[in-house]
Design a protein around this nucleic acid. Structure first.
Length: 468
RNA sequence: GACCCUAUCGUCUAGAGGCCUAGGACAACACCCUUUCACGGUGUGAACCGGGGUUCGAAUCCCCGUGGGGUCGCCA
C-alpha cells in the first residue's frame, strides 16, 4: 500500500490526564476540519507516556467528548505507550549517529545549575558538560548513575518556519539547549515521541495550541537530525475564560461533556467554537458541512480569544429552534430522568418540545418547562392569592364545565376560551393568567390554547379541580 | 529575568495602503408585534493601545514604548 504524500494528514494528540476541555475541543475541530476540507486523514493519537498522570478514564473521557461533538478520526487512536520499541530503536540510531549522547548530570545537579542561573537572571539551560565535541575530553562517567539521553542540538544559526497562522517565526539555536529525549529509565520524552510519531504517521500539518510554539524549533531540529520531512505547523491561540483570564481546571476549563449536562446541543458548541478565532466574512451561523467547505488556516485570529457564554446561548437557542421535535423529546426524557421523573408517557415529550422550542435557549430549560406537564405544580399561596381572585375562580369554573365536553384542539380551545370571556365579561389575560398559574404554576407560558391542547383534557380538568 | 507570540466596539470578529465619516454578530438600550412571558422584527449607542516613521494617502507597512498571552521540567 502506498501513501500519497500529497494528501493532507492532520492529527489531534491529547495526553489523557483529564477530560477533553473546550480548548482541546477547538484544536481537534480545526485539525479535523482541515483534513476534511482537503480530503485528507485525521489521526487521533493518545500521548500517554506520563504513566503517573495518564488514566484509562481520561482516554475514555476524550473519546466520549470527540464522539459527542461528532469529530470522527480516520486513523487511531494510537497509543504512544504501545510504540516504545520504535522510540528506543530511533534513540539507538541517534546515539550511533552521534546526534544524541549520554548525559550523567543528575537531577540534583541540574536543579542546582538552574537555581544558580536563575539567581544570575539568566535563562536556565543545560550547560553541555557531557556534550561530545571534537577535541574535547569528556568527564569520566560516574559509576552507578544511569545516564539520560540528550539531543545534540545545533549551536549556531536559526530555526525558522512559516507558521500557517502566525506567519514566519525564527528562533536562534543559541536560545535552545540539548534537551533530554530519553529519561534515565530509558523512557522517551514528549518532544521526541511527537517527532517520531509525526514522522511515522506521515503527518503533513501539525495544528495545535499556541503553547507548543516553543517546542516547534526543537522538533524541527530533531526531524532534521533524523533526515525526516518537516511538516507544516499552525499554532492556534488560546481560549480565555468568560472574564478574560486564563482557563484552568479551577476556572472555566470544563469538560465538553459538561456542555451536554448544561443543556447545549453539540452543533451549537461546534458552531460557536468554529467561529471563535476563525471567520469567514460576516458568516455567523453555519453547519459543519459548510464549515468544512470554508475552513482555511489564513483566517484564524492569531491573538487569544475570550469565551462568551452569551453568544453560545444565542447559538444554542437558534439550533434548538431548528432541532427535530422527536429529538428534543428524547432530550426532555433524558434530562427529566436525571431528576428522577420517569413516568412521562403523556403528553408526548415531542409535543411539549414543539410548544417551547422557540422560546428557550437551553435544553435544561426546555426540560424544566416540560416538568410541569408531568408533575402537577404546587403554586405558592402568595401566587394563588394574587391571581386566583373571585372573578377568576368564577371564570375558571365556567371554563371547566365547557372543557369537559370541548374538542381539545388549539383552534377549538381558542373558541371555548372566547365563550368563557363572553360569558364572564373578562378580558383574555384575566382568565389566561390565573389558568396558567393553576395548570403550570407560573403566570407565563406559551399560548394558553396550545398549552391546554398539549396537556389534554383529563389532566387539565384534574388540575382545575384542585382549586375550584 | 530571557526568548517567542499578540493588540479594531463590553465580547467574537470583517478589514491584506485609497472601497472605512471602520462593516457584521452577541450583549445593552428603544420601539413594533403580542393573550402573559418569551421568540421575532426594526432601530440606536459603542472600537482602530500610545508615540514616531514610510507614503500623495495607513486600522492596514516599519520602529520604539505599553498592555495581554505563552515558554524556559528526566510534564505533555
Amino acid at each position: 500500500m502506498t501513501v500519497r504524500t500529497s494528501a493532507v494528514r492532520t492529527r489531534f494528540a491529547p495526553s489523557p490526564t483529564g477530560y477533553l476541555h473546550i480548548g482541546g475541543a477547538r484544536t481537534a475541530l480545526f485539525a479535523w476540519a482541515y483534513a476534511r476540507r482537503h480530503g485528507g486523514q485525521f489521526i487521533l493519537r493518545i500521548e500517554d507516556t506520563d504513566i503517573a498522570r495518564s488514566t484509562p478514564e481520561a482516554v475514555q473521557a476524550i473519546l466520549d467528548g470527540m464522539q459527542w461533538l461528532g469529530l470522527a478520526h480516520d486513523e487511531g487512536p494510537f497509543y504512544q505507550m504501545q510504540r516504545m520499541y520504535r522510540y528506543k530503536e530511533v534513540i539507538q540510531q541517534m546515539l550511533a549517529a552521534g546526534t544524541a549522547y549520554h548525559c550523567y548530570t543528575s537531577k540534583e545537579e541540574l536543579d542546582a545549575l538552574r537555581a544558580a542561573q536563575e539567581a544570575n537572571k539568566e535563562k536556565p539551560r543545560y550547560d553541555g558538560t557531557w556534550r561530545p565535541e571534537t577535541g574535547k575530553t569528556l568527564p569520566v562517567p560516574p559509576s552507578g548513575v544511569q545516564p539520560v539521553v540528550r539531543f545534540r542540538n545545533p549551536t549556531e544559526g536559526v530555526v525558522a518556519w512559516d507558521d500557517q497562522v502566525k506567519g514566519r517565526i525564527e528562533i536562534a539555536n543559541a536560545e535552545l539547549d540539548d534537551f533530554i529525549i530519553a529519561r534515565a529509565d530509558g523512557t522517551p520524552t514528549y518532544n521526541f515521541c511527537v517527532v517520531v510519531d509525526d514522522w511515522d504517521m506521515k503527518v503533513t500539518h501539525v495544528i495545535r495550541g499556541d503553547d507548543h510554539v516553543n517546542n516547534t524549533p526543537r522538533q524541527i531540529n530533531l526531524l532534521e537530525a533524523l533526515g525526516a520531512p518537516v511538516p507544516r505547523y499552525g499554532h492556534l491561540s488560546m481560549i480565555l475564560g468568560d472574564d478574560g483570564t486564563k482557563l484552568s481546571k479551577r476556572h472555566g476549563a470544563v469538560s465538553v461533556m459538561q456542555y451536554d449536562d448544561d443543556g447545549y446541543l453539540p452543533e451549537a458548541v461546534l458552531n460557536y467554537l468554529a467561529r471563535l478565532g476563525w471567520s469567514h466574512g460576516d458568516e455567523e451561523v453555519f453547519s459543519m458541512a459548510q464549515f468544512i467547505e470554508w475552513f482555511d488556516l489564513d483566517h484564524i485570529t492569531s491573538s487569544a480569544a475570550q469565551f462568551n457564554t452569551e453568544k453560545l446561548n444565542w447559538l444554542n437557542a437558534h439550533y434548538i429552534k431548528l432541532a427535530d421535535d422527536a429529538r428534543l423529546g428524547q432530550e426532555i426524557h433524558r434530562r427529566l430522568a436525571r431528576e428522577g421523573v420517569t413516568e412521562t408517557a403523556q403528553p408526548e415529550a415531542a409535543s411539549i418540545a414543539a410548544l417551547y422550542k422557540d422560546r428557550v435557549s437551553n435544553l435544561n430549560e426546555l426540560a424544566d418547562n416540560a416538568h410541569a406537564f408531568y408533575v402537577a405544580p404546587h403554586p405558592s399561596a402568595e401566587l394563588l392569592a394574587q391571581h386566583l381572585t373571585d372573578s377568576a375562580k368564577a371564570a375558571l369554573g365556567d371554563l371547566r364545565s365547557r372543557l369537559a365536553s370541548a374538542e381539545f384542539s388549539p383552534e377549538a380551545l381558542a373558541k371555548t376560551l372566547k365563550e368563557t370571556l363572553a360569558a364572564t365579561g373578562l378580558k383574555m389575560p384575566q382568565v389566561a393568567i390565573p389558568l396558567r398559574v393553576v395548570l403550570l404554576g407560573q403566570p407565563q407560558s406559551p399560548a394558553i390554547d396550545r398549552v391546554l391542547a398539549v396537556m389534554g383534557r383529563e389532566e387539565v380538568l384534574r388540575r382545575l379541580g384542585r382549586v375550584i
